[in-house]
Each structure stands twice: as C-alpha cells, then as structure tokens.
Write a protein that binds this DNA or RNA. Structure first.
Lengths: 221, 221
DNA sequence: AATAGAAAAATTGGATCCAATATACAATAT
DNA sequence: ATATTGTATATTGGATCCAATTTTTCTATT
C-alpha cells in the first residue's frame, strides 16, 4: 500500500491555531508591546469561543511573550534593556556551544542549505524578511547538533527578542555586518573548524546585542 | 495609616494551585511516568471544574513535564536516556556559567545560607529530602548571578530531570560524592575563585549525569 | 473459544452561562 | 472645582452543558 501517511494525532486544535497566530504576530512585532489582548476580541477574530483563546494566552505567558494579571487581562510583554542584554548574553553562550556540537555532523546537504540562506540573506531587499532568513540560516546549521533540547531553548530565547533583533537588522546598518559575519561562520563550518565557528557565532550574537542595546539606550532615553 | 500591605494582584487562581501541585508531584516522582492524568479526576481532587485543570495541564505540557494527545489525554512524560544525557550536558554548560557570574557578587549572607544547606545536605538521613536540599544549595549560590533569565532556564531544566536526580542520589552512593563536591564548590566560592567554582560545578553536574545514565542503562536493559 | 463489529460508556475540546473583579463614569459632598 | 462614593459596564475566572472522539463492553458469527 502506497499512501502519504499523515499523522492525524497532532491535528491542530483551535487553541493551537490561536497560539501560533499570536506567537507569530508578537515575534514579528505586529502586536506592539504593551498592547492589550482581549479574550473576546481574539475569540471573535478566530470565530471561536474564549476557551481556546485562554489556553493560547496561557501558553504565551509560559513562554514569556505576554504577561497577565488576574481579572485584568494580558498584554504583550516588553523587555527592559537589562533583560534584552541578558537574553543576548545567554544566546551567545548556548548558540556558541550548539554550533560547536553541530560542526562535526554537518553534511553536504546541510551546508548547501545554509549557504543558500546565507546568499538569500545578503540579496534580500525586503527588510521585513531579514529576520526570518537570518533565523533559518542559523537554525539550519544548529540542527546538525542533534540536540533537540538545546534547540528548543534556542528557539524560545530567540522568540523573546526576535522583534528587537529585526529592528536592529534594519537600523544601525546591522544588516551588512550580519551578512559579513554569516559568511565567516559558514566558511568556518565548511572548514570543519568547530572552535572558530563557535567563537564567531558567539561574537555575532554579542555584536548584535551590543548594537541593539546601544540603539535602545539612545532611543529610550 | 499603618497597615501591612499585601499584594492581592497575585492571589493564586485555581489553575495556579492545580499547576503547582501537579508540578511538585511530577518532580518528586509521586506521579509515575506514563501515568494517565484524567481531567475529571483531578478536578474532583481539587474541588474545582475541569477548566482550571486544563489550563494547568497546558502549562505542564509547555514545560515538557507531560505529553498530551488530542482526545486522548495527558500522561506524565518519561525521558529517554539520550534526553536525560542531553539535559545534564546542557545543565553543565549553563550552571557552570551561572556560578561563574555569581561568584563576584556573593556576599556574606548568601555564603552563610549556602553553607547551611551544604551542612544540612551532608547530615540529612531522610533520602526523600536530599533532592530538595541539593536544589536549595545550588540555587542559593546561583541567585547571586543576578540573571533571572538564566535562573528560570536552570529551574525548568532541573524540573525535567529532578525525579531521576533524586534516584541517582539515593542509589549508587551518589549522595556521599555529591556532598564532597558541594563542599569543594562552596570552598571555591568562599575563595572567590570563579573559574574553579565553574569547573567544579560543571564536573559535579556531569558526574551526576554519567552516574545516572550508567545506572539507567543497567536498569533498563 | 476467538474475533469482528456494533452499541455504550468515558473522555476530551469547545460553547455558553454565571460569578468575581476591575474600570469608567455619574452623582454627591466638601 | 475637586475629591469621594456609588453605579453601570466591561472583562476575566470558573461551572455547566454539548459535540467530537476514543475506549470499553457486549453481541453475533464462525
């Protein structure tokens, strides 16, 4: 029997759909930080009741993307400069280790895919897509680490600061620098130099963080 | 006006209470892995309806403590040896960094508290309490890192493998070795030797992981 | 007796309803 | 005019009800 088997176990529930949509909207900055999320309003937007919305909001809160107060509701979580700084520092630690673990396992296909993302990043003119391509580039390499737990942590960390990272890429000329650094990381991976790839990734993340924090300090003062 | 003001904003909701209770039961191993969690049954145990229970289960799933399948329900998540191994490796990375960041900030009170936990750990005869004291010892030092994001990650990582860690302490004589290592870590902290404390913490976590994995490999085969 | 299939029970996901709380606003007092 | 109190509205948290799905039990057939 030849059939494209589909795993029906994980058919999306209403809560899944709402969660995915809200997560995406927050990550991409379509929902401004501080914005109120009214259960009723969201429920109507998705043609469902408040129950799945409440579950979605609960998940978002667990991931730190929103904050809720009892009987008051949910608002998109903002991050202080100190929190942003800390998350970048954390990412530098973990992602440097992930790429180190990944390099020995990199095969031709993975490197080719990463190379495509790297080129695409450099050529893309629509700044709205940089964040997504940037993420794809790094993640395609990280996957070779074969460390699902690390990868999940990296994803949730990135979720928290993705909005700001996107801003940093478009402003302060972060894009051209990121492009250079991506090429260097990719080259180190091709050379199977895990230590170098790790150091470059660490610096890449820290550079982005420093540049972003400097920008925000200026902007918020 | 003289009144002991209490912040009523964060009065626990029913979902909070159920979540805390289930989390504790899973972490401490009172709920065996694979065990079914029936919404109705739990709701009755807490004299509430299924709604708060569902929210609690949703949170537990986000933290990886249970797995759920649509229309089938929730079961306490078990971990494969590979997953346990990975989480210990991850903890070693992060906790080594956290203690390094903590050492410069350690004040007398914090060291005194850690010292008390360390002594308590060595003297406690009730093996059921070792897990909790062990956690308190490490966490009291980690707090000085002033890195709330790191600390939250450390907590959730520990939540995932605490059951197994408790088993490891009671079996394979893990307890006496842990006690020795705690004293060495504490001494390095008193000496303000961040590098040493970091290295010792890393080894401490990796040792526990290796010993646990060896035990499980033997047991599960 | 073993097995396939149908009916019944159990369980979850979602909708609707009610209670508790917060917010907005009007009325009143100073 | 301002501040305070009371009231109405909006919003959330929780209970109950219904639909979709799974699991169990029963029955018929071989």
């Amino acid at each position: 029997m030849k059939l494209a088997a589909v795993d029906v176990r994980q058919a999306a529930s209403a809560a899944d759909i709402v969660y995915d949509a809200l997560r995406k909207a927050i990550i991409e900055g379509d929902l401004a930080e501080g914005e109120n999320l009214r259960q009723d309003q969201i429920a109507q937007m998705f043609n469902t009741s408040r129950i799945p919305v409440r579950e979605a909001l609960s998940r978002l809160e667990q991931h730190g993307l929103i904050t809720t107060e009892r009987y008051k509701g949910a608002v998109v979580a903002g991050l202080s400069i100190e929190e942003i700084d800390e998350i970048f520092e954390f990412r530098a630690l973990v992602e440097a280790e992930v790429i180190r673990l990944a390099v020995p396992n990199l095969d031709k296909d993975t490197l080719a895919a990463a190379s495509r993302y790297c080129a695409e990043f450099g050529q893309e003119t629509d700044s709205a897509r940089w964040g997504e391509i940037n993420r794809s580039f790094h993640y395609s390499l990280y996957t070779a680490s074969r460390r699902p737990y690390y990868l999940q942590i990296v994803q949730t960390s990135l979720d928290r600061i993705d909005r700001y990272l996107r801003a940093q890429l478009t402003l302060t000329n972060g894009m051209t620098r990121a492009d250079r650094e991506h090429q260097a990381i990719l080259a180190a991976c091709v050379d199977r130099d895990a230590d170098l790839a790790s150091r470059l990734t660490r610096d890449h993340v820290l550079n982005a963080g420093r540049s972003l924090v400097a920008f925000l300090k200026d902007q918020r003062s």
